[in-house]
Design a protein around this nucleic acid. Sequence first.
DNA 1: TCCTTTCGTATTTTT
DNA 2: TACGAAAGGA
Length: 668
Amino acid sequence: MKDLNPRQQEAVRYIDGPLLVLAGAGSGKTSVITRKIAHLVQKCGIPANRIVAVTFTNKASREMKERVGHLISGAEARGLTVSTFHNLGLNILRKEHKSVGLKNGFSIFDDQDSRSLLTELSHKETAVAGEDVDYLRNKISQWKNDLVTPSQAQSHAAGEEEMRAAHVYSAYDRCLRAYNAVDFDDLISLPTLLFRDNEEVRERWQHKIHYLLVDEYQDTNTSQYLLVRLLVGRRARFTVVGDDDQSIYAWRGARPENLVQLAEDYPALKVVKLEQNYRSTQRILKAANAVIDNNPHVFTKQLWSEHGFGEQIRIIRCLNEESEADRVAMEIMHQKMQKGRDFKDFAVLYRGNFQSRTLEIKLQAYQIPYKVSGGTSFFSRSEIKDVMAYLRLVINPDDDNAFLRIINTPRREIGPSTLEKLAGYAQQRGVGLFAACDEMGLEQTLTGRPLQNLQRFSRWLAETTERIQRTDAIPAIQQMLRDIDYQAWLLEQAPSAKAAEKRMENVNQLVESMERMLGKQEEEDIAAVIGKLILIDLLEQRDEEDASDKVQLMTLHASKGLEWPYVFIMGLEEELLPHRNAIEEDTIEEERRLMYVGITRAQRELTLSLTAKRKQYGEEFEPAPSRFLDELPTDDVVWEGKGGEQRSVEQKKALGRAYMANIRSLLE
DNA sequence: TCCTTTCGTATTTTT
DNA sequence: TACGAAAGGA
């Protein structure tokens, strides 16, 4: 406790009622949560298996587990739940699946699966061809987050577009249930609805959980908010930690006003503010405070720091996006050489992923090692999706989505017309596609080669399923991969032999991960392992192991929760930051919070850059400087470059020297 | 069935 | 500019 400040101690000690911790950026909120867990176990005598801590990301939950592990012994921590909202929802559904009409082994549709199902449905259900799938996906997600049922959506739909979406929503949900599947949103909304409507189940869970902690509370959506309320019940023993100024996911359904709502729903709510920042210089905090002051506030916060005042914030004007990237790359190289800074102490943040491209080219030119976060995740790789689809079908024979993905992967000479006939028959019989292959009646619809191919496949899959479930799962899965000769398929599909090898490696890694998870006692069941796998991104873990000396590149969104000594933010221009759509839709406040998040990532130095000209969609235009630059305190910023300035001779020489020095150091 | 052409569109994305 | 989807042709 000694190393906590008085406010933090108060937040840890207060356990008599509901508590809201308003934790400013860098104020040690994770410490408070982890200490509190230790305090609850060691000082308050609450058994660890009665404590639940909820986060939004796998990464945050891993970090929390690790830090709790340093504070209390393994024995004390036994049964402690630290998980993401979605994982918690999955665990609830797995135990209560019967009450929500799901069968054991239900599948989880990820975003891609949902989209492909919606694409199909929008063609079938609506007269308008090519209904905007993005729109549908968002709309349906919104409805689910707000706990709006398909029929409610239909009766409240405003306008024709929404009516159509409501129609697709209804068909989409019916499909999911027929496939014995849920989507990501269902992992939260189904348990919430279950608790809301089923007293027995609700009370059982309320009884189980003695204390609940929620991280990043400003990111909760309506359904998550209600889930928390239903889990804590009337005893209301919980701590939520959040910062309304760091709410940057409203566009995904997050409701930062849940922070305010909490005070209304729990009149006894105690509020503790953490305003001391342990991360940044005073100057950086002053700038951050100044920017965020332009937003209206329900809770006011003033971050302060005991660190020195620090360097001025630099704003660099560049000619165009290429010179901007070049300048940032050179700056990093220069500082590395001149001041002996490590590459890993730098981060470059930007609004949109596309901005990384120009920068990457320059970083490569200077041979600066870097790591781009974001991009395609492990589970969106086609080879992983394929193998997962096989496994999903093994666990859940009703998963038609998985069936369709793999029926011709690798090729089995089963084309669209055959599948259409099969689907028609399956629908008429009210069974899944896989089950339909086996029925005698199918011979009325299909004959000859197509029928034989289907039956051969279904027989093989039935045997494989049997092997995986009855015998040792891992060897059976490996056998399955050999049966379909997946390696050969990859060689045929991948652009090069090397790429194919890489993909096979990914597949092997997937199998290894399953083996490891099966080894842990908690998840003996292969079905449980496969379900859980979808929620975890294996790449993330791989990244963390690779803690080498690299400059970090990522979007402002992805930077939340992280920190670096030296931070660059690129593209401080109107229409980019704030983004054009945000200006149009008048969500400037969220953009400002994004800027605030970016500024508060920096520990020591902050450099902002903008361009005079930017090429976008092949056309050049002249962006205006971001309004957020005007909101910075003038005394604390220093402007460099006049907007149209070419690189000076001096800079070019310095650059050449730095480049040579780097080559030399690489050769050593 | 597969490959090419053409057209339209273009944030952020914890799970 | 650059990518994916849809349409058209071999």
